[in-house]
Design a protein around this nucleic acid. Structure first.
Lengths: 346, 346
DNA sequence: TACTCTTGGTGTAACTGTTTCGGTAGCGGT
DNA sequence: ACCGCTACCGAAACAGTTACACCAAGAGTA
């Protein structure tokens, strides 16, 4: 019931001015523009066009473009999305809410303006509120790799706490007593899960929880590499590590090799994997594995089915991860490795 | 000058009927629909809406969705695209021409209907004609990883023939005389380049070009692994390989390890890399490297600048690849490896 | 046979938002 | 006082879609 014409009538301007104001065109007085935007917000204006039939999904990033690195997780996610959209022949549009949503407009209006009818949301620890607001507006959406208490927020993610605990318990079972963890310094839900799983295992085994063995790292190869050096420089260094990120795991592997350490003879290493990276590395590393392709596929399929009227209700799902033992875990050596040892050896 | 109203007038129906016919809505006689579509094609009808201002790029696949695997190359490409679109705040939409373009409509009409104003085209050996047709229509587009003689087709790709020759000459210089190549069985331009570079090097060195040493493989890990087994089962097996695909290289590495062969002591291996896979493997493999991120970035930046009026003309560019020596190439062993040797050793 | 009732197909008109064109008001220069 | 430029805005025409009425033809029924 609210069109550009009602807005125009309400504040006493022409539809042309309203249209120009809403689209950021030049030649409109700033005062007038603000009045139009305010009135549009008041009456809950949304662009009404043929987009009721638009069959486009958004993969929407909630943080600034400079921080969107589109790494292995996003790539695997997209791979799944591209499979999931085919059942109902949707397209997928990559959007950036942070970059493009104007503060005045609602999320629904934003997505309508972009011509998408549903959104797969990528969130981070500091943008969870955005996801909640989108769901509260009733816009069809699903959050990837996070979870929410509010029942109106749909999400699909991985449950990695239990398998992380299993991974650390595997190390304990092998005989390790000093186990370091390198976890992403940005405290999102996934990495907090893995940290919690680590703590669960340590406490359940009655072992001491040493804060020095918990390293907040940057989740890339350098971060993993530096963590290895840090751990080995401790007075009482760990004999095993758990890294909660694929790239960090690779970096740790490389640093170990550079230090002349042989896995799993001198050190044990459990990593994390989104896709097939563990199989590309050498040795193929023992890892907690989540299937990002599956997350993309299921989210896209559910959303397209929802928008096609084939289903209703919510999707709030945690897919279990899988702990996979490969070739980087074994019993600890008689003497714990240290930086000095490795230097002498190399 | 051609709108739904002119079409309606030309064939004597109402605009409503034309609109319904063009959008595949029900309640329109099949004969009438065909007449509308024919007339629309005749007058070159394209949807005229706000799309003059649409700031959306397509990443368009020209082949069927089932064959779109969205592997490492596509992921790196998208990574670059997402950087390249930010300068002019474009969005990117992933389309599938094969799936969605109706036979009656022009490519321009298709892209307009999808709401994109420019297209980055992914092609394969059997869809080059599509790219040419799109360029011939004058629609702003650029083809990734291929090249064309027709001056109206824009493209950006990698030149891998010269560096492939360099790679094989590197092996020859190390003393190898029997060198196998595993090349993608689908004969697209890129892989044909690498095949040609291999032949260049062999011929320039005055060596025999043995067809048995050229293996047409599937470009995945199994393909690479099987090629190793095939090569080593030859009566006079090669002492070095060149694989023209990252996954095939990884598969070859794994198979070598599984056979108990140590690189580069027992065998030399040159691979190909799109991104950072060579650094993830062990040993980090010597490789011809192309920067897929750069291809995505430059194509997106050029296209967005073109559409923003900041530039005109064409982009027809071949980016040189780079031959990078890592740890999988050395002088050949005294005795060529064979399957029997490896089995005994293992 | 005559009378509903349904349904596929169509046109009119009203709806959506955008854009062109022209006009007004204000300001500065001569 | 006059001219010219520019920012701003409205009327009207443009684009395509859709709700609604209508009509013809067929099916069913008294």
């Amino acid at each position: 019931m609210s069109s550009v014409r009602t807005i125009a009538k309400n504040i006493g301007v022409s539809v042309a001015t309203v249209s120009r104001a809403l689209n950021g065109k030049p030649n409109v007085n700033e005062t007038t523009r603000q009045a139009v935007l305010a009135e549009a917000e008041r009456v809950g204006y949304t662009l009404r066009r043929n987009d009721s039939q638009s069959r486009v999904l958004a993969l929407a990033y909630t943080w600034e473009p400079g921080r969107v690195d589109y790494g292995g997780f996003d790539a695997a996610l997209m791979r799944g999305i591209l499979q999931g959209i085919n059942e109902h022949r949707f397209d997928v549009n990559i959007l950036n809410i942070f970059r493009d949503k104007s503060p005045d407009e609602s999320y629904t209006s934003f997505f309508r303006r972009k011509g998408v009818s549903g959104a797969i949301l990528r969130t981070s620890s500091d943008t969870r509120e955005v996801c909640h607001d989108i769901a509260a507006e009733g816009f069809p959406s699903i959050v990837i790799a996070d979870r929410f208490d509010e029942p109106e927020v749909n999400f699909i993610g991985s449950e990695s706490r239990v398998e992380s605990r299993k991974a650390v318990e595997h190390l304990i079972h092998l005989g390790h007593r000093r186990i370091g963890i390198g976890v992403h310094q940005v405290r999102d839900t996934d990495h907090e899960d893995r940290r919690a799983g680590y703590i669960d295992a340590i406490k359940a085994a009655g072992m001491e929880l040493d804060p020095a063995l918990i390293a907040d790292i940057v989740a890339d190869m350098d971060g993993g590499a530096n963590a290895v050096t840090y751990f080995l420089s401790l007075p009482d260094p760990p004999t095993a590590f758990y890294f909660t990120d694929p790239l960090a795991t690779l970096g740790a592997l490389h640093r170990c090799r550079a230090l002349g350490l042989q896995l799993p003879r001198d050190l044990s290493l459990v990593g994390f994997d989104d896709s097939d990276v563990r199989q590309h590395a050498f040795p193929p590393f023992t890892a907690v594995c989540q299937d990002a392709v599956q997350l993309g596929f299921e989210s896209a399929r559910w959303l397209t089915r929802l928008l096609s009227g084939q289903t209703s209700g919510s999707l709030r799902r945690l897919v279990p991860t899988r702990f996979e033992i490969n070739q980087t875990t074994a019993a600890p050596p008689n003497k714990a490795p240290s930086l000095d040892d490795s230097r002498n050896r190399g």
